[in-house]
Computed example of a mutant assay.
Amino acid sequence: MLIQELEKRLANAERQAAIQVIRARPERKLSQVLEQVDGPRGQALGSVTLTELRESGAPPIVHVDGGPPVNLVLLDRAERARGMEFVGLVRRVFAEAPGWVAIGYLRARVGGPRWKLHHALRRLVGQGEVERTGATSGTRYRINTRPRG
Rank of each mutant, 00 (worst) to 15 (best):
S137N: 10
L74I: 07
A81M: 00
R80A: 00
A81N: 01
V130M: 01
L53C: 11
Q32A: 03
I103G: 13
V90T: 02
W115L: 00
N71W: 09
R122S: 12
A97W: 15
E52S: 06
A58Y: 08
G138M: 01
W100Y: 07
Q127W: 03
P98L: 01
G99A: 10
G138F: 02
G42F: 07
R107A: 06
T51N: 13
L121T: 05
V90Y: 10
A135D: 13
L74H: 12
R77G: 03
N71R: 15
E131T: 05
R109T: 09
H118P: 08
G67Q: 10
G99D: 05
V33K: 04
G88A: 01
F86S: 00
R41G: 05
V101H: 10
S137E: 08
H119M: 05
P40T: 12
R91M: 01
D65Y: 08
I61C: 14
A78Q: 03
R107P: 08
R41W: 12
Q43R: 13
G112E: 05
V48R: 15
V37N: 10
E35F: 08
E96W: 01
A135F: 15
Q36C: 02
R122K: 13
F94D: 00
G67V: 04
D65K: 03
L89P: 02
Q36W: 13
R54T: 09
Q43A: 06
Q36S: 10
R92F: 03
E79L: 00
T133D: 06
P98E: 01
Q43G: 07
A95Y: 11
R122D: 10
E85W: 10
P59T: 03
P113S: 08
V62F: 06
G112Q: 11
G42L: 00
G46I: 01
A58L: 07
R91K: 02
P40M: 12
E55F: 12
T136A: 12
I103N: 07
E85V: 12
F94T: 02
G134R: 07
N71C: 09
S31L: 08
V73S: 04
T49V: 06
R91D: 00
G111S: 11
R122A: 08
P68D: 02
G128P: 15
L106S: 11
R132N: 03
R91L: 01
P60W: 15
G104Q: 09
V90K: 04
L30M: 07
G39N: 06
Q36K: 15
L45R: 13
G99E: 14
L34D: 03
D65T: 04
G134N: 12
G111P: 14
G128V: 11
H63M: 04
D65Q: 04
T133S: 07
E52H: 10
Q36T: 12
R114M: 06
R114G: 06
R123G: 04
D65N: 05
R91P: 03
L30R: 15
A78E: 00
V87S: 00
A44Q: 10
D65V: 06
L30N: 13
L34T: 13
D38G: 06
Q127N: 02
T49C: 05
G126C: 01
